[in-house]
């Protein structure tokens, strides 16, 4: 059993196992289910993510009209072949947006770790699947890796925007995705820890300030940003770059920032983007439509 990232890495090294295997072992112990049954549960999550991405890139709109259609826009842009960065990074952002647009439209998604941050992890993993020709089994393994990292954050800190701001949601998701991407690409347990730390450090302090209190603006595009940061952190870790601050200390820093954040930027729609003139205009329009 692991309680923090240091123990998780230590156990993987000691037992010469991948992080995903340590997570699966722990689930067997805590749930009393067989490894096959647990794998099957994760395979169902995988299918939910795949379906959400497919639905998102075909174009979906929320009831409020605040978000929708951007995943399709980005997908068409990628297909056009002319872009600034690379296909993995763009697809990751595209799939992240797709998932969160489906979420905003009250569609079925998998919380990773939350619904508001449900795009980042599948965005990164399914993009890598496409560009590196990986099997679905490899992605399911990576979901266990992401799960192990998210488990530590949820148990040692916070993952809800109302308790700790967006850093607790998209920040945690990006850290999970970065670590999972490193394992998927053959990185070491230590490199997974560094990728996790680098990604989370880049999102510390991020406010949760949704317009009209809806999980749409800025949430949908924040997931695209989270995916891009996750990939950047994963690349740095794979290049041998280390985080000066260890993962568990970054998690604690996130927690402390979260609990001291003003309530206006913790999912109350009382500050930040929610109270900009345009944000307030939208809030009024949404209220008139009577949800």
């Amino acid at each position: 059993m692991f309680k923090n990232i240091a123990e998780l890495i230590e156990q993987a090294k000691k037992q010469d196992k991948k992080i995903w295997e340590i997570m699966l072992d722990q689930e067997v112990v805590t749930s009393g289910l067989s490894p096959e049954a647990i794998w099957e549960t994760m395979a169902v999550r995988y299918e939910v993510m795949e379906k959400a991405i497919e639905r998102g890139i075909s174009g979906v709109h929320s009831r409020s009209g605040l978000t929708g259609g951007d995943a399709k826009r980005l997908y068409d842009y990628i297909k056009n072949g002319k872009f600034l960065t690379d296909k993995t990074s763009l697809l990751a952002s595209c799939y992240a947006v797709a998932t969160n647009e489906v979420n905003a439209a009250m569609g079925v998604i998998c919380a990773t770790p939350t619904a508001g941050s449900s795009g980042t992890v599948p965005g990164v993993l399914f993009a890598l699947k496409d560009t590196h020709d990986l099997s679905s089994d490899r992605i399911i393994e990576a979901l266990f890796t992401a799960g192990a990292l998210g488990y530590v954050v949820a148990n040692n800190a916070i993952i809800s925007g109302a308790r700790g701001g967006c850093q607790a949601e998209v920040g945690s998701a990006a850290a999970m995705a970065a670590g999972a991407a490193v394992e998927l690409m053959g990185g070491t347990p230590d490199q997974i820890g560094h990728a996790f730390s680098i990604a989370l450090k880049n999102l510390l302090g991020l406010a949760c300030d949704p317009v009209g209190g809806l999980v749409e603006v800025p949430c949908v595009k924040r997931n695209a940003g989270g995916a891009a940061i996750a990939l950047s952190a994963a690349e740095m870790a794979l290049a041998g770059i280390e985080s000066r601050i260890p993962a568990d200390e970054v998690i604690l820093a996130m927690y402390k920032i979260g609990i001291t954040m003003p309530v206006t930027i913790r999912e109350t729609a009382l500050g930040g983007l929610a109270t900009t003139p345009t944000g307030l205009d939208w809030q009024e329009r949404i209220a008139l439509e009577e949800f």
Binding site: M106, C110, G116, G161
Partner: peptide, 11 residues
């Protein structure tokens, strides 16, 4: 789960 928020909807 069904969106849009894990704490506000699924929870």
């Amino acid at each position: 789960m069904l969106g849009p928020s894990s704490s506000h909807t699924a929870g």
